[in-house]
Amino acid sequence: MLREKDLSKELILLEKIVSNILRKEKISLSMDMTAPDVEGWDSLNHVQILFTIEEELGIQFPINEIQNLNTIGDLVKLMNKYM
């Protein structure tokens, strides 16, 4: 099982992407947060975040896996899986 420390690179990248998309100064995320916990992370911004992650990492997430994301931690683990 991945320890949180091992996912810090992905979490930092996600924070950078989310800060850019939501046009805020550095946003702090944690693994147990969900999208509604982050001001401005609505369904439209969610799509742009996913798209930007794919572009940055040169990957394509399978649709069924994107649909099953509940927490920031789920997204970070998904990023790690496909990197």
């Binding site: 369904s43 439209l44 969610h46 799509v47 996913l50 798209f51 794919e54 394509q60 649709i63 994107i66 649909q67």
Partner: peptide, 11 residues
């Protein structure tokens, strides 16, 4: 059934 994901160009 995937309303916003359909706006990702590759999808």
């Amino acid at each position: 059934e995937i309303p916003t994901l359909i706006s990702i160009p590759r999808i």
